[in-house]
Each structure stands twice: as C-alpha cells, then as structure tokens.
C-alpha cells in the first residue's frame, strides 16, 4: 500500500508566539521549527501500516527550502521518500489542497493520511478540501484505523466520544492525538534520513496555480485578562458567583 502523508513545518508550539508590531505576522526570529505534531501521528500510523503489510510512505511538504528539514525529520520517523513543493508564497488551505491534489495525481497513493490540523494556523481544512477536490471519501480525527479489502473502518474522535465510519479506498484520513504514540527519531534512522530521496519541484512543475481563497489581513493581540479581586468569605464568594459573574 502506498500512503501519501502531507507534513507541515510549524513554529515550536511550546513557545508563545510574538506578534510583529505592525500586525503583519508573527516574529519567528530565534524560534525553532518542527514537524506539525499532528502530522507525526499521521506519519506513525502510515509507517505502522506499511511495517505490517508492506508498501511505502511518501511525504510531501509545501513551502520554502527550509521545509526540507521538516521532510528529513519525517523521513527519520520511517517514511521512504519525500516531495518538496518549493514556494515562497503564503498559501491558504484551498491552495494547499490544490497543490496536494497535483502531487496525489503524480503518486496515485491508496491512502492519504495527515494531521487533523496544523498547530500554527489551527485551520483544520486542507485534508477535507483535498478529499473534496479529488472526490474521495474522508475520515477525520481518527482514533483507530482498520484497513480491510479496499476499505477502511475508522473510529473517529467526536464531541462526547467516538463514532465509527466505513469508507472505500482510496481515501483521506486525518489523525487525532490518541491514534498512536509517535516514535522518536532514533539516531540510526536520522543517519538514514539524510540519504533518502527528496524530490524538489515548483508549482509550475506540477502545473498548479495554487490560488488562495482567503487572506490574513492582520494579526492582533488577544485581550488580556482583567484584574481580579480577593473576597473575604465563602458567603461573599458564592454571592459574587451568583449575582456578578452569574455562573452558578
């Protein structure tokens, strides 16, 4: 089985972002970039499927040349090779889905697995848009994936628990946090990743226009928390919660 895994380069989510003073974006000076954590679950799932029943895991990342680092990190987790679609443009999910669809057509995989959202934009859009554009079924927020003959049964994380969905292959699946426990890149795998093939192409090579349907006009700071008060007694506390805050 051939599995295509789109991966995204994101600023380290453990570091609180600093906004540029003119609101045009975030200041990434000194911030290290990582593979989007949800995509690591996708890679792990794909690698486990291939380890069990054969095939190959192919990564694709879209962005500047720096994304090669992201791809290598993914290759160190067990993927076989990767695509780097180089562009300096900022693409929205619709445009990303267009690019992924073009790579999909080049590779004709049996399955696309990716993270449910990237932790920078928190959009949660591109995989579903890709499925729609390719007219493939989808199973988002996967908790468990079972592959059968030409189909997949997917338990999905939904509000209040799980649901179970059956889809035909090829299909697009997005990974949620309980899907598996991503492995760490072992040092010998890091050495191997250096030698794995990364195919670099431009948007023009793929013949896609990649037109963004949305544009971020600016970023602003969320409002700060207002100062609180110290109450003198339990009675006063309950009174404030009932009458002022109206939460009881």
């Amino acid at each position: 089985m051939k599995i295509l895994v789109p991966v995204r380069r994101v600023p380290n989510p453990d570091i609180k972002v600093r906004l540029k003073s003119d609101g045009s974006g975030v200041d990434t000076e000194g911030v290290n970039f990582l593979v989007n954590p949800f995509d690591e679950y996708a890679i792990e799932e794909a690698v486990q499927i291939v380890e069990k029943s054969g095939g190959e895991v192919v990564l694709v990342s879209i962005g500047t040349a720096d994304c090669e680092e992201t791809l290598r990190a993914g290759l160190a987790l067990g993927a076989l090779r990767g695509w780097l679609v180089e562009t300096s443009e900022v693409l929205d999910s619709a445009a990303i889905a267009d690019v992924l669809a073009a790579v999909y057509k080049e590779e004709s995989p049996d399955l696309v697995i990716t993270g449910k959202q990237s932790v920078d934009t928190d959009n949660n859009q591109a995989a579903q848009m890709l499925a729609a554009k390719l007219d493939l079924p989808q199973a988002c927020f996967a908790f468990k994936v079972e592959l059968g003959d030409g189909k997949a049964t997917v338990e999905r994380e939904i509000d209040g628990g799980l649901d179970v969905k059956e889809i035909t292959l090829p299909a697009v699946i997005t990974a949620d946090l309980r899907l598996n426990q991503p492995r760490y890149a072992a040092l010998p795998q890091i050495m191997k990743a250096k030698r794995k093939e990364v195919k670099k192409v431009s948007l023009g090579d793929l013949g896609v226009e990649a037109k963004s349907a949305t544009k971020i006009l600016g970023l602003s700071q969320p409002p700060a928390r207002a100062a609180g008060q110290i109450v003198g007694s339990v009675e006063e506390l309950v009174d404030k919660l009932v009458n002022d805050a109206k939460v009881l």
Binding site: Q125, Q128, C140, A213
Partner: peptide
Amino acid sequence: TTGKDMIPRLGGLLGAGMVS
C-alpha cells in the same frame, strides 16, 4: 467536530474560501 469535519469538505466542493 461535525462542523470541523464537513464544512471544509463543502468548501472544497464549492471552491470556496473557509474561515475556521
């Protein structure tokens, strides 16, 4: 989770821009 699952697919079908 339903909105997050379905609306982007709708966006893909309609060629529409999406805001989450």
